[in-house]
Design a protein around this nucleic acid. Structure first.
Length: 252
DNA sequence: ACATGCGATGGTGGCGTAAT
DNA sequence: ATTACGCCACCATCGCATGT
C-alpha cells in the first residue's frame, strides 16, 4: 500500500488536483477533509459514518463492485451494429457518452455492476427516430412494392413525401423512415390492389372452363374477369382471390 | 438547421480492501 | 470495528463529420 505522500503524488501525476486542495473548500466534518489527512473528531466521524453506511449496504446485497466489462462491451457493439449509437444509449441509460465510448473501445477493463446492468437492459428496438440504419432492408420492401405494381409516386405519397420521386438514400435511412416504409409495405400488401402472379389463377380458370362452365357464367361469378378468358401475367390480388373462391364454390 | 455518431481532454470522488 | 488509501469509474464539455 502506498503512503499518503505517494498517494498524493500519484494523483498529481495523473494531472488531478491534490486532495488537500479539494478538501480546502470543504467544511469541517467532511470525508474529503479526512482523506486529505485531517484527523479531527468531526472528520474522523464522517469517515466512520461513511464506512458504516457502505458496510451496511454491502451486507444488504447492495454492493456495487467492479465487474469485467466484456459483457457490456459485446452488448454495446451489438447495439452499435444494429444502429444504436452512443448518444442514444447515453440518454436511455443515464451513462455519459465518454464512459460508453471507453467501454466500447476496451479502455475500461471493468465497470460498476449497476452500470453493467443498465447497459445489458438496453434493447435494439429502443433506437432513436433519427438514428441512421442500413437502407437495404427498407429498399427490399420498396422493391417488393414496385414488383406488386405500386408506382414510386404512389409509394412516395404513402410516405408523406410531396416531391415527384422517392426521396430515400440507397445507403442509410433514418429509423423513422424505415418504420414508415415497413408500415406502408404491410398496409399496401394487404390490399386487393397489389399485383400477383396470374399462373395459379389461370390454371383454376382453365379447370372451370374444362368442367363446362361457360364464360358468361364465370363473368357473373367473378368481377373484372376479361371477356377473352385470358389473364395477363400479373393480376390484382382481389381478382385472384375471387377466382379461387369461385373455383372452390363451383367444384365442391 | 437539426440530429446523430465519433473522438478527445481535464477533472472528481465512490468503492473495496488491507492494515491496524 | 475502525483506519487508511490505491484504483479507476464516471462526469462535463467540447469539436468535427455526416445525413436528413
Amino acid at each position: 500500500m502506498l503512503t499518503g505522500t505517494q498517494h498524493r503524488s500519484a494523483i498529481e501525476a495523473r494531472g488531478l488536483r491534490p486532495i488537500g486542495e479539494l478538501a480546502r473548500n470543504r467544511p469541517q466534518g467532511d470525508r474529503l477533509r479526512y482523506m486529505a489527512g485531517c484527523r479531527c473528531p468531526a472528520c474522523r466521524g464522517a469517515n466512520t459514518a461513511y464506512e458504516r453506511m457502505r458496510a451496511k449496504a454491502r451486507k444488504a446485497g447492495e454492493a456495487n463492485p467492479f465487474v469485467p466489462a466484456d459483457a457490456a462491451r459485446a452488448h454495446i457493439q451489438a447495439l452499435a451494429a444494429a444502429g444504436v449509437g452512443r448518444r442514444t444509449l447515453s440518454i436511455a441509460t443515464d451513462i455519459t457518452e465518454a464512459t460508453l465510448w471507453a467501454i466500447k473501445r476496451g479502455e475500461r477493463a471493468n465497470l460498476r455492476r449497476a452500470t453493467e446492468k443498465k447497459i445489458l437492459a438496453m434493447r435494439a428496438d429502443l433506437l432513436a427516430d433519427g438514428a441512421l440504419v442500413d437502407a437495404a432492408p427498407t429498399w427490399a420492401l420498396i422493391d417488393a412494392l414496385l414488383k406488386a405494381g405500386f408506382t414510386k409516386k404512389a409509394i412516395a405519397r404513402g410516405l408523406g413525401q410531396q416531391g415527384s420521386g422517392l426521396q430515400l438514400s440507397r445507403t442509410r435511412v433514418t429509423v423513422r423512415n424505415a418504420e414508415k416504409v415497413r408500415r406502408l409495405h404491410d398496409k399496401l400488401m394487404a390490399t386487393a390492389e397489389r399485383l400477383v402472379d396470374a399462373t395459379p389463377s389461370a390454371a383454376l380458370l382453365q379447370e372451370l372452363l374444362d368442367e363446362g362452365y361457360l364464360p358468361q357464367r364465370l363473368q357473373r361469378e367473378i368481377d373484372g374477369l376479361p371477356e377473352s378468358m385470358t389473364l395477363p401475367k400479373k393480376i390484382r390480388a382481389g381478382l385472384a382471390d375471387q377466382i379461387a373462391e369461385a373455383h372452390r364454390r363451383l367444384t365442391q
